[in-house]
Design a protein around this nucleic acid. Sequence first.
DNA 1: ATCTTATATCGCAAATATACGATTAATAAG
DNA 2: CTTATTAATCGTATATTTGCGATATAAGAT
Lengths: 117, 117
Amino acid sequence: MRYKIQYAMALNKKNSFGKKEQDLAECAKALAHPARIAILKVLAQHNECICGEIVSVLPLAQSTVSQHLKELKNAGLIIGTVDGPRSCYCINWKAFEKFNREFSFLFNHLKTEQACC
Amino acid sequence: MRYKIQYAMALNKKNSFGKKEQDLAECAKALAHPARIAILKVLAQHNECICGEIVSVLPLAQSTVSQHLKELKNAGLIIGTVDGPRSCYCINWKAFEKFNREFSFLFNHLKTEQACC
DNA sequence: ATCTTATATCGCAAATATACGATTAATAAG
DNA sequence: CTTATTAATCGTATATTTGCGATATAAGAT
């Protein structure tokens, strides 16, 4: 079948949802790439500021790692401070706790009885 | 500046990471859209099979909702059973517990002392 | 002042995700 | 059998993400 109609923009409907849903989804999106999980893992294991070490551990170009770090920072999951020509990143544990709390709150309701499936 | 070089395919590097990182990221990706959070919320509140009700609650077309349900199903977060002309979905609580466990395991290491930031 | 080092940003290409209408499939109802 | 109902899938357009090389920036070293 041919489609002759010109479609309207694939509208971004994300704003049609509640703030809680949006925030949770935003946070999950930051976690939705193995490179970012790996970065967080490295930061968690060191629990101190790392910078170029992350690049040397990951199988990605420096610019790509920098971009992933930026996304984690924008999501609030890590904190970055500039120290001369190098940057220093740490996990924002409070943000993680908040994520866990919100996440559990949404889904821990009726875990006891399953009506079907 | 002009770029004359033809770039190599933007290679998918996701397989360069460990299975645990990939699985966690995969799960997070399924949660990375407010519509899917909203769907899970509805399922959690009812704790029983819902189908077209989800469509009527969400501000999205039926085909779009069906697509989101498929993604949640592929990620293993929900279970779907066909019941005549209608489909019935439930939350897969075990998958959620696993996600929570893996997630905590990765990041609960050295939460106590923060060296900087 | 120039060079080096570490990191962020820009510009692009490719891949993936989002969204919807149209269609199909499968069963139920008449 | 025909029709109605429910949901999945297909085809398309658009938006966003991923990734890298090139460049810019910023501070320390020489």
